[in-house]
Design a protein around this nucleic acid. Sequence first.
DNA 1: CATGAATGAGTCTTCATTCAT
DNA 2: CATGAATGAAGACTCATTCAT
Lengths: 204, 204, 204, 204
Amino acid sequence: MVSTSQDAGDRAKQERRRQILAAAKAVFADAGYHGASINAIIERAQIARGTFYLYFESKAAVFDSILDQAMADLRARIKRIEVEDKAAPAPQVQLRAQIVAILEYIVHDRALATLLLSAGHTPEAEASERLDAFFTEVRNLVKRALETGMEIGLTRRCNVDLASAALLGMIRGVIEEVLRQDGAITVDDVVSEMLMVALRGVLK
Amino acid sequence: MVSTSQDAGDRAKQERRRQILAAAKAVFADAGYHGASINAIIERAQIARGTFYLYFESKAAVFDSILDQAMADLRARIKRIEVEDKAAPAPQVQLRAQIVAILEYIVHDRALATLLLSAGHTPEAEASERLDAFFTEVRNLVKRALETGMEIGLTRRCNVDLASAALLGMIRGVIEEVLRQDGAITVDDVVSEMLMVALRGVLK
Amino acid sequence: MVSTSQDAGDRAKQERRRQILAAAKAVFADAGYHGASINAIIERAQIARGTFYLYFESKAAVFDSILDQAMADLRARIKRIEVEDKAAPAPQVQLRAQIVAILEYIVHDRALATLLLSAGHTPEAEASERLDAFFTEVRNLVKRALETGMEIGLTRRCNVDLASAALLGMIRGVIEEVLRQDGAITVDDVVSEMLMVALRGVLK
Amino acid sequence: MVSTSQDAGDRAKQERRRQILAAAKAVFADAGYHGASINAIIERAQIARGTFYLYFESKAAVFDSILDQAMADLRARIKRIEVEDKAAPAPQVQLRAQIVAILEYIVHDRALATLLLSAGHTPEAEASERLDAFFTEVRNLVKRALETGMEIGLTRRCNVDLASAALLGMIRGVIEEVLRQDGAITVDDVVSEMLMVALRGVLK
DNA sequence: CATGAATGAGTCTTCATTCAT
DNA sequence: CATGAATGAAGACTCATTCAT
């Protein structure tokens, strides 16, 4: 009995937490970190002022929570591409699968996508640094991929810093386009198109 | 006489205005729209509080002014690429020249670049909409270029919406990389690399 | 049976109450009335938030309880000094015994002492008035003692209001000093010194 | 002209500052440091919220200002008592004059007096430490006076720590009594009575 | 024109108190 | 009885904007 009701309480708490996180995510996406007010968050979450601080220490803390969660989720979807293992699918297939998984995760949650696209200009939240670190991590992954590609003669020689920046910018641009068209397009098509541009260029 | 002193006054006024705009640009770039305070701006511009409101009606107004100026400058550097006129340089040469001109303008003014890259997330400034409109305008330009390219058989068939979004995202990503490296790289090199990726893709 | 278990319940309740009072006393002494938080009290008392309000109706109420208890304890230690009864010890001996008893009670409970010394400045607690009343009561006692002393020719003629205020102030000052030295000094010595100053003055 | 109007502005600012300090002093005296709210202060001072922060950085800062001013004023009234210079008035006359001056200053400003009597239990204001230091300073002065008195055979041998604590407590008790009687008594009479008790004791 | 003192709506955060479980 | 999640009034502080000089 006791454990049951405690579990129920815990579940309720987790639910509340999710509810606040969702509201905060939406508000941050709408207004940006600075523009978002606790007021807006609690109104959206339909809770009292104090309740917010029962679940999060501060405005920065919710923001951090959101980003941390997103980063963890994204990290879980990112894996090194296996080139040497002959049993593994072809690198391009692996790459495609990963990009689809990532984009699907991001695009699936509009607010989160907006957040990720705009964060970075948010000096006070600690998460901003961690977000930077995360993006650096991703960039390094792409850089290593390019380097490997060059080694095995798959990819053209290029400035990997610039090329990776260009590729990531491309991904961001494409995500924005998907958000803009809001579901009128499947992630799968998007990835095909994007890979085409990225891998083969626009010229015939 | 009157007109002369008026002109002098006008010139002085214009100078003051520029001075405030410059200060504001720096502050906005440093702190973002919300993080920027009138205080910081007037301190940097060495003017009194009231003086600021003599030249701009609000914080949002300066921000708008800065973006409007930037958009006007950029528009002046963007021209349709001439494909039919045989006397004109090759399309790729024209394209390259334009992109170099644009990037040089943006990268030359670090504060402005930072501003443009982050301005999308600044709800209260009206300019935000105009900025959106501006980017749409640019995207349309790119789209038309792609369509023309496809018509004359220069470019691969593709989803022009996505491809243009990808290309613009690429440009933004590359600009960020240039800012990150802060002058350790010339615009010319950047454009070469970027065009390579964009036009031919990363594959060998 | 019922009455027995009720008694047990009552005893348990009383115990809980004491536990909370002790925690509250410590917290009030540490942080002052305003600085003390219900949070700190319940943490120290190891009880749940709601439980606190089962035993006291408000923060002010605990504070009042503490002071009331202290006042009752102190009252029990204060008696009129018997001058006429020849069987009684000499007035100075009686006085000394009482002061020792009072100081010992106060100094023995550091938290309480701190509380009493600072409680005058705690507007919202009702007890503050009662504390004032209590001190007035004590002052009156001292005043009557001085008057009696004057009548029987033991004491110098003086303004009893001022003299009693001075004497009580002295006691408070001395208590503070004892707290400051924290046990490096016995109440007995303190009282000797204090009586010397009070009764004979500092001059030789 | 310019300097005149600037001076006028400065004078006006000084006046405002005084006005706020006075209001704050009254509110702090009424409610204690914690109990005092910026709201209460600005209402009493008849100014807007922001104006307060134009003159003081924080609530603690006003509090500090008040105490610092008081301490400076009091220090200016405290001088070592000259025992060796034969041309100087008798030590007791010097002492009396000083105590009168100090009490007159304190009693003259009811709010300040209340503040000084109750401060010390005000942890967050920096001034609290400085106030402690000030009181320690005064106690040391009294201690040295007692020691000197003992050396030249004027004073009885005694525990100077306790005796000085007793004497200062006495002063505080007497000040409280004067405030209680609110002007129904002159400082001069008070000092006479107090010195009588302090120097000769209450016994005949 | 320029100034800067004054304003007050709005921000984040705390905390005494209540009440459903 | 005990619990602790929920509440919201109230607190300190910021800052874009106005206006008398």
